[in-house]
């Protein structure tokens, strides 16, 4: 069998399945985050599932194949935005009722999607933070691998000359 010209990529089967499953995993992660207050799961679990979609692409395509689509600088801002959103929701409770994280929104019927006051918004904030945090973690790891591979290649070419 002919060797792949891109050594950082996995086989064509893995790449095709990763490409097809990327959107589905993303949607499942969003579902777990948004339904956090009525079904098992929540911000952390859904965030990890969302980050897994990016990690899967990284494992299948390598950093060189993903860098044009996923930018870690934007994900870092997204992570900070999640933290600020969580803190702001706590502050809204302080301003409205003098208690940190107090409920100020429509409470609704238990078991419905639009219910439970600010808890779904807090789940979304935690989900944003965890999803971008775990994704950035693995992207930074693969950036290190990218440069070490580049360095080894340059060293090998230098030895041949």
């Amino acid at each position: 069998m002919k060797m792949s010209e891109k050594p950082y990529e996995l086989s064509v089967i893995v790449r095709t399945v990763a490409r097809l499953l990327f959107g589905l995993i993303l949607i499942f992660g969003f579902y777990v985050i948004v339904h956090g207050h009525i079904t098992p799961g929540g911000g952390f679990q859904g965030g990890v599932v969302t980050a897994l979609a990016v990690i899967m692409l990284l494992a299948a395509y390598g950093y060189e194949g993903v860098v044009t689509e996923v930018r870690e600088k934007i994900l870092e801002r997204f992570e900070s935005l999640g933290a600020i959103m969580f803190w702001t929701l706590g502050l809204v409770g302080v301003i409205a009722t003098a208690t940190y994280f107090a409920d100020v929104l429509y409470k609704g019927t238990p078991g419905e999607l639009i219910s439970a006051g600010t808890i779904p918004l807090m789940n979304i904030a935690v989900g944003m933070k965890v999803a971008s945090g775990v994704a950035v973690l693995v992207i930074i790891m693969s950036i290190g691998m990218y440069y070490s591979r580049k360095y080894q290649k340059a060293e090998k070419e230098g030895a041949e000359e």
Binding site: G41, Q45, V48, V49, L52, I55, L58, A59, V134, M141
Partner: peptide, 17 residues
């Protein structure tokens, strides 16, 4: 859910990388 997502998913992917 946390164990399945982290243990079977994230850690496996990081180790394979």
């Amino acid at each position: 859910i946390a164990e399945a997502a982290l243990g079977a998913g994230a850690i496996t992917a990081i180790f394979i990388l």
